[in-house]
């Protein structure tokens, strides 16, 4: 892979798709000026996050003119953006589209919908059912939308499918002021999570968080890119809109994987066998969730 990726750390307006569409155009212009190959937006970038009953109002079908407008721009730059997907059977998904060369190449529907604490996604969205890695002309990618990344199995599935980079669009409500450092507690968790996943899955991790407030809730930015060695190689500001451009390379992937061949020794079949055993173990019934 070789990909000059741009993190678009934007502040979407709540429920105003037309305004957000306009801002996506402006950010894509900026990405092109920076000669980026790929523009990554945050979770629900076209709609804002605390949607509640707006969910069905702001939803778009994949063949809607608004989605088509952005997809058309992917002739010039590969694009990944978030929106509420209205499916033909009238379910609503927290989805992410990857578009390249003027067509939709991949859609990921968020699998893990948080519905605890401040979160209400389980109330409004239908859940996706897979983590499928996809090929782009710039490399092999897998999406983890926010909470998807907190379940370690999600990233591991992309790892097994040969992902070069995990793309992690986020709308993370920041919280926790009982900390010593420079980051809110929830943000610190994100930094730790991405550092660990990039290091132990030996992939690039590109996390694009949003910024701004909704109903008193801060989304604190600090988007970042972790190298396959786990190090932060590029980072965006907290709290403010920011554009970060960085080149993801194959050579960094190779270095990490030669040094410690975790991928070669993943033993996926062993895991598959044991998963089947665990899932059928009557002593464990109740512990294993079959959806």
């Amino acid at each position: 892979m070789n990909c000059r990726i741009a993190i678009c750390q934007i502040n979407p307006k709540l429920g105003l798709v037309a305004d957000n569409l306009q801002s996506h155009h402006q950010w894509l212009d900026r990405c092109l000026e920076q000669k980026a190959d790929f523009a990554l937006f945050p979770e629900l970038s076209l709609t804002g996050y605390i949607l509640r009953d707006l969910t069905s109002d702001v939803a778009l079908t994949l063949d809607s003119p608004q989605i088509g407008e952005i997809v058309a721009r992917s002739k010039d730059i590969s694009i990944a953006f978030g929106f509420v997907e209205h499916s033909p059977d009238h379910r609503f998904y927290n989805s992410f589209v990857f578009a390249e060369d003027g067509v939709i190449k991949h859609v990921h529907r968020k699998v893990h919908l948080p519905d605890y604490g401040i979160f209400e996604e389980g109330r409004y969205f239908a859940a996706g059912n897979n983590f499928t890695t996809f090929e782009s002309k710039h490399g092999r990618f897998g999406f983890l939308i926010c909470e998807d990344a907190w379940h370690l199995s999600s990233a591991w599935l992309h790892f097994l499918q040969g992902a070069d980079a995990l793309l992690v669009p986020v709308a993370s409500p920041s919280r926790g002021i009982k900390t010593d450092g420079a980051h809110l507690a929830s943000q610190k968790s994100w930094h730790e999570l991405c550092a660990a996943q990039s290091k132990f899955l030996q992939t690039w991790v590109v996390r694009c968080n949003r910024v701004g407030y909704e109903d008193g809730v801060l989304f604190d930015g600090e988007s970042a890119i972790n190298s396959p060695a786990g190090e932060v190689v590029a980072a965006a500001h907290h709290s403010e809109e920011d554009l970060v451009v960085y080149e993801l390379t194959s050579s960094a992937l190779k270095r990490a994987r030669v040094e410690t061949p975790l991928r070669r020794n993943a033993h996926a079949n062993l895991v598959r066998r044991q998963l089947a055993i665990i899932a059928n173990d009557p002593d464990l019934s109740g512990l294993i969730d079959d959806e």
């Binding site: 002021i177 009982k178 010593d180 420079a182 809110l184 008193g216 801060l218």
Partner: peptide, 19 residues
């Protein structure tokens, strides 16, 4: 409870401005 005052300052000022 303790309070990281620099972080609290930033979050609360941003809140007042935005809202």
């Amino acid at each position: 409870p303790t309070c990281n005052v620099e972080l609290a300052e930033r979050v609360l000022i941003g809140f007042l401005k935005s809202e």
